[in-house]
Design a protein around this nucleic acid. Sequence first.
DNA 1: GATGAATGAGAATTCATTCAT
DNA 2: AATGAATGAATTCTCATTCAT
Lengths: 186, 186, 186, 186
Amino acid sequence: MKDKRTAILEATLKLISERGFHGTSMQMVADIAKVGAGTIYRYFENKEDLLSKLYVELKIEFSEVLLANYDSTLSFRGRFHNLWKNMVHYSIDNPQKTAYMEQYTNSPFCDHTMEEIHKKYFSKVANFINEAITQEVIKDVPIDIIAIFTFETAVALAKKHSNGMINLNDENIEIAVNMCWDALKK
Amino acid sequence: MKDKRTAILEATLKLISERGFHGTSMQMVADIAKVGAGTIYRYFENKEDLLSKLYVELKIEFSEVLLANYDSTLSFRGRFHNLWKNMVHYSIDNPQKTAYMEQYTNSPFCDHTMEEIHKKYFSKVANFINEAITQEVIKDVPIDIIAIFTFETAVALAKKHSNGMINLNDENIEIAVNMCWDALKK
Amino acid sequence: MKDKRTAILEATLKLISERGFHGTSMQMVADIAKVGAGTIYRYFENKEDLLSKLYVELKIEFSEVLLANYDSTLSFRGRFHNLWKNMVHYSIDNPQKTAYMEQYTNSPFCDHTMEEIHKKYFSKVANFINEAITQEVIKDVPIDIIAIFTFETAVALAKKHSNGMINLNDENIEIAVNMCWDALKK
Amino acid sequence: MKDKRTAILEATLKLISERGFHGTSMQMVADIAKVGAGTIYRYFENKEDLLSKLYVELKIEFSEVLLANYDSTLSFRGRFHNLWKNMVHYSIDNPQKTAYMEQYTNSPFCDHTMEEIHKKYFSKVANFINEAITQEVIKDVPIDIIAIFTFETAVALAKKHSNGMINLNDENIEIAVNMCWDALKK
DNA sequence: GATGAATGAGAATTCATTCAT
DNA sequence: AATGAATGAATTCTCATTCAT
């Protein structure tokens, strides 16, 4: 059954986003998932594999959300606004998933295999950016620098929102997306 | 002696930046610091305290570096450029310290106590930003949003440089600082 | 079906002779036997029972081989030579079975129940020995001491051969059987 | 302190000779040794290392006992009798140690590293045997075959004695040592 | 102050066995 | 009869922390 696998992944997400890798034992995952401890190992090779599989699933989901309402009839600016807002809304609406992905990225589990996966699932976004560069709508700078001014800022904002440090209401989102666009546009 | 305390902090920095919280035991710290395992507990209450104290020291050092060449006769833009470049250069030159701070920030150890400390040591920078807002040189937006477009971008860039994903040469730094400024300026 | 039972016993023999009791899980046995894990428990009560049943079957086979070419027209010496060589050849030709039996004998599984079985299946050999004692061809000593100078030496030789420590060619076998006989003969 | 190390080794010997490798957990060893579970790992790398170190210590002790009363003024036959009786008496007097060594030898832990150790500590015995061969007192056969007719028989006898299958009184020992000698002598 | 041997709770993982299908 | 997913007790081993020296 897919049920148990899903329950395990959900328990892992919940626990790790709240307590960190450190503070989450396989037993805890099993308990929250209402599953025997050994059952986890029927679906995942070991703890590292569990964390990695969860990360990949979340990244895929995230990448799909970004382009949910992609509309090629819009201006680049309009498309960028949509993309960026999707990112922020997802991050706000899914604080656990966001926290998990951030934590995973900054952990020794996240090796170079993961970068491949990252690139694979974000290729559509990369295409959009490259097109905008070619059309001279945004600055002609390395795409990784562009990424920082889009992804990292969006995620960081959502994180501060979840922390309660910022109130990301519509007004503030509008401010932020415009700051992003100012940074990128030619 | 201050010596042992310093040796412990340095060993902690080295080990954790290379192996993560997970992979660093108190025994390892003691060995690298050439100190008995029990000695750590004369200077720090426990592991969490050690990690936290190290974080605070690094944050203070970092905050002091930022304003190293602060020159009130320069334009806001010029002062911002200096500030931002200090940040990037420090991050590039001190990859272990940067890695440590990032890791700590994304860990469950980093609770709200830390935010206070953060604010305390960055008050001078905050003053500079607020003055620029008042003088209508940069956008009038919450300071935490400003922070994201300055700190987070700078650190993220340095991290990608350390990873080898970007080559942060002078040209790229100039590009990035201008993107930052475009995001902020009115 | 007898098929599955046989497949399970063969898989057990193969695995345990190669990997030991320790290194052989019921799942491995099931996999090699191409049988569901639960199926083993239709034929054997539990792991211990499986190991014990296999041991008994091997001991029976072994005891039958010993007297394969028993020829009552031969001298005692001739009959002993045949018997002993059968033993050595069987041990050399069936290293897995020999390894299994040795391992089982030296394990806590092998309790006193097994000694009964041992005696039962080797009664014919015991009769032959006792007859030789009565006829004053071999020394009049307890049969268990005789057994050591026949069985144990044969098996130990075969084991050293399998290890590669001795090359049990025909010459060496002849040497050894004569040493045995010298030990026994009056 | 050597105390704890010794206590751990003694507990291991006792438990494993009674319950086997399988049936002996590190926790049991710790409990019997009256030591914390972690303490074992201060003295031994892991379970395998513990078992191996114990084996080596026992083999050394055993090899020393064999030649305890070696007297070069005696005939070869006399020296062999002493040697062999030492072996039997040690095996009878130390059933746990004997059981342990037997068990270890027949386990997957016992790899080829051990053979080196075996040869090292029994070199004096080997020298004695080789001398007897040179002097044409015993048969000129491979030393490993000689070894089987001395060591294996002695240990096997002692084991049967411990099992209660044989009563190894002085008479029976005399019988057995003579059988051995008959097997070896020219 | 400094040490490091000792501790034992807790971690990840395995595996014999069961039982619903 | 046969299966194999599920289980959870048991295992090995780690490591933060203590405390006698």
